[in-house]
């Protein structure tokens, strides 16, 4: 219960800070040098985190598919197709982050 209260307090604080930041960003002109700097830093960091998590999960799925193929080579074709679907779905999350980073930097 205490944990829940802590999380709720943290979330409300983050929301309040975010609203303040949004209001500040709306008030200042977009082409400010300081803002551009923080846009580049934040989007690079976001893309790094997304790529790391995506790489770990894609590696896990490829390892599982290879293991299954090694145990039962007859099922290799189906496993490969399912693996590619899963890889595409994992990768799309990283790609969403990339698109959002493009929007942050260029938009």
């Amino acid at each position: 219960m205490k944990l829940l209260t802590t999380i709720g307090f943290a979330l409300t604080t983050a929301a309040a800070l975010a609203t303040n930041a949004l209001a500040a960003a709306a008030a200042t002109p977009a082409a400010d040098g300081e803002v551009l700097k923080w846009r580049i830093i934040s989007s690079s960091f976001a893309l790094a985190v997304a790529a790391a998590a995506g790489a770990v999960s894609q590696g896990r799925s490829i390892a599982a598919a290879l293991e299954g193929t090694a145990r039962n080579p007859g099922a290799g074709g189906d496993l490969r197709v399912s693996m590619i679907i899963g890889l595409a779905l994992i990768e799309s999350l990283v790609i969403y982050t990339f698109v959002i980073c493009l929007i942050i930097i260029l938009g």
Binding site: A88, E91, S92, I95, Y96, F98, V99, L102
Partner: peptide
């Protein structure tokens, strides 16, 4: 949406 953004992001990247 996901089909669009996946293709767009991959090719642009």
């Amino acid at each position: 949406l996901s089909l669009t953004l996946r293709l767009f992001g991959n090719i642009t990247g």
